[in-house]
Amino acid sequence: MTALLRRWTVLLLAAGAWEVWARVQRSTFFPPPSAILARMYRLWFAGPATHLFLTEDAIGNLLPSVGRILAGLAIAAAIGGAVGLAVGRSAAVYGYLDPLLQFARALPAVTLLPVFIAIFRLGTQMEVAFIAFGTIWPIMLNTADGARYLDPVQVETVRAFRLTAWQRLIRLIIPAALPKFFAGLRLSVSLALILMVFAELVGSSNGLGYEMNNAESSFDMTWLWSTLVLVAILGNLLNVLELAAEHRLLAWHRGARQHGN
């Protein structure tokens, strides 16, 4: 209980202070949190029970954004994980790809948006490709790192069992690289949110970024703040999801570390 209190006290106090200040000032730019929450409810969560209380607007703008993030991350995880394993396990592949990887990683992904728009045109395909490209590097580089430094005792053990290359990959290399893969995925999840909003702000016919554009051009600050809060909530939810997956798949890793092995 005290932990819960400690966790939420500062946030609630800050919101309360904002509320009082905004009401006293009648600020145009900073509407009170109660107004923002009320608007959020009306905008997105006052729908019929058959739609899980989601409104038309939520279905039209929130779901596409979530879908793009998940699709982009899935592509990045699949390609980044596979290439990362290859780079980590093969000195030749590493030699060929490392300069390219270092270069691609150093380039801020957002600067490539015009290129993606030129190639893919505006639309979901462009946004997914853009998110996938931007989030692939942390996953790839971390997985490569995890696959490169295997425990020599484990490698020799598995060799002594005469496992095939495929069995070694499944039983040794992938599990050993998994903690690093998740470390990369964690970084990519927060990156994906940034890239999603950015791509939708620049050119999209739906999504949360599109909604922010609309709110801004109609000078509706409560609407704009509502969208921002929703983006923050979405980011938190994605983090929680990632941590839950990690918690489940890496239970052995946590346990082994606690036992000092």
Partner: peptide, 12 residues
């Protein structure tokens, strides 16, 4: 092997 804690795979 001597180093049993490393030769047993911790994820299995």
């Amino acid at each position: 092997f001597q180093d049993y804690s490393r030769s047993l795979l911790p994820w299995l």
